[in-house]
Design a protein around this nucleic acid. Structure first.
Lengths: 342, 342
DNA sequence: CCTCCATGGTGAAGCGTTTCATCTAATGTG
DNA sequence: CACATTAGATGAAACGCTTCACCATGGAGG
């Protein structure tokens, strides 16, 4: 491999100074360069296949053109959370927007918790996107770096962070209300163990809101816990028949769980929606990958990722603090039965 | 934000020269530093929360501690191929190993085809992992950079590239043979339009191998085409009954497609495996997310990712060229019926 | 007493950029 | 014709680090 060509080489080739070459190649608006010189430099750069060295640039400008993204890991394993298709879709959008914006994407799992602010500094990250809920010490460290951070789906109120989220509580309300409107009054709530913060707790709040509004008492025995994963939903189905299945409908906080639930129910010879209706949340592609296809609360994941990326780039380039809340709506499919019609 | 602390600051604090500080912090084995000085420097670094600047280091050492990963995009959209869960799992493994190895991960979609060698040079990438099949001009460009590249699932023979793959042809053989052993002779092959290179074509070759070995003629009308996606498999199911469904079994080249097929069949009131058996490929989690759970050819995706990452790191650090082929085996579940028993 | 060598440490060059301050010529103004 | 102004271009410093070559000091050996 022959030595990499540097700006110096281009300058020599074009018979100008390094300064001039730099000005030309960066299209500095206020630099006064003649058309002729400009052309010469560009030609030289092309001829030599000049590629700028971002490291060098970073040192001076303190801009790395790098956006860091942190994706949660599944508890036990070291796997990123891609088994929930939400993250893949989200990441796709981020990658796309970031690339179009002239940045690159540094992907990390949550492993290096405490260390992430070091990573951010070492690499001179221009901006950071974090999805999910994290300990506040972790966020505080990040804050100290002064790097713009966009928090996605984190229920944190702190003027430092930009946020993009949905109104999960309202989403939970929507889903439950939908079931109620279809005549259901015995409605199961299926989720992981609820932590105070976090989207699932919010969705639970929405669930109770809807119940309360309809004058339906909240019943402890209609609350089910399982991993937010296919097997979690599947297991809940078994638990449900074990408890005697008094419910006519169930709201699962994620489609992946809803899918497990639907199949688990079917495995127990209950049919969906005839014996029990199911509604999910997210509207990931998975929700159409079952029979029946699953009615769910749609959130525009692509939009979520795009927004997060756009906001972080904006912030890097001097934009103001932003908090975006994306809209939600029900998408009706075949997993909910209208029992008013019976 | 106060100014970032540099090595100079640490040196001053520890009352030593920058050189010494650098030696200490990098644990240079041949540098002769007294225990006492060493301690002082480390203490200072800790006190000031010193974080090295990778850009500066990169300039000198020409090592960026960055591994680039390229994931294919779905044809039309800008989405990364995460709708096939293969990629999420693969990426997880890579991320994990790369991080453990002290590197970071730069993620790109295939958008910047031609430009990737530029990106690689700009960022001084230490190594590159590419999954999928790409035009050879693209690979040639990469080759010119001299950066170690690991090709995953690419049927390319070129001494420059490291590779990790499975024997797709053998996998196709295994799947088909399995079906034949269960008494099937009318076996559909379900895939996307076959290109010469590429894993799916190889799997097709394996399919014919098995047929030929068993003395079963290959029948054109048993070949189905659709996108390697859920909807692709679903559509094939419809096509299949339209053609009169002469087959007793089907081999789909990817689980995601197999899932679509199973559900599509069920939607046509055919039951799996009673009316028709289905076998998939990959053993992604998805394959257990249907009823019946899908019998499939297992490839260890996590291992694939880990190996790719390990090889690229090894190569960066001076290792020799490597080509790894991972083993394959059938995992029996419930989507194939043994019709010998009838 | 002089030389040698080992030990512990440092100065300064250099990596590839950006950018500020400056310089030269040429043009315009009175 | 003298002077100010401007267009066009450049030199050199700085970014933070690594590393080569070199400098002290002091004890061992002759």
């Amino acid at each position: 491999m022959r030595k990499r060509v540097s700006l110096k080489d281009v300058a020599r080739e074009a018979r100008v100074s390094v300064t001039t070459a730099s000005y030309v190649l960066n299209r500095k608006p206020d630099a006064r360069i003649s058309e002729e010189t400009s052309r010469r430099v560009r030609a030289a750069a092309k001829r030599l296949k000049y590629v700028p060295n971002i490291s060098a640039r970073t040192m001076i400008s303190r801009r790395s053109q790098l956006i860091g993204v942190i994706i949660p890991q599944t508890g036990s394993s070291h796997r990123l959370m891609f088994d929930n298709p939400f993250y893949g879709e989200f990441l796709s959008a981020v990658e796309y927007v970031v690339r179009e914006g002239g940045y690159h994407l540094l992907l990390s799992g949550t492993g290096p918790y405490q260390d992430y602010s070091s990573i951010a500094q070492m690499r001179n990250l221009d901006g950071i996107i974090i999805v999910g809920t994290y300990p506040s010490e972790f966020l505080d460290e990040l804050k100290k770096t002064g790097i713009p951070v966009v928090l996605v789906d984190a229920y944190i109120q702190d003027h430092y962070f930009h946020t993009v989220s949905i109104n999960d509580r309202h989403g939970g309300y929507l889903a439950t209300k939908y079931l109620i409107d279809k005549g259901h009054r015995e409605i199961a709530f299926v989720s992981e163990k609820l932590r105070d913060k976090g989207v699932h707790h919010q969705r639970f709040l929405g669930y109770s809101d809807a119940l309360e509004e309809a004058g339906i008492p909240l019943r402890k025995e209609f609350l089910y816990e399982g991993d937010v994963a296919y097997h979690g939903g599947f297991a809940v189905a078994q638990e449900m028949v074990k408890r005697g299945k008094r419910e006519t409908a169930a709201f699962a906080v994620a489609d992946i769980m809803a899918l497990g639930l639907v199949n688990g129910l079917r495995a127990q010879c209950l049919s969906v929606p005839e014996d029990i209706s199911v509604i999910g949340f997210d509207n990931v592609p998975l929700s159409t990958m079952s029979l029946p296809e699953i009615t769910t609360v749609n959130q525009d994941i692509w939009e979520k990722g795009s927004q997060a990326a756009r906001i972080v780039i904006e912030a890097v380039e001097g934009g103001a603090k932003r908090d975006v809340i994306l809209p939600l709506h029900i998408v009706e499919r075949d997993s909910v039965k209208d029992i008013n019609l019976d």
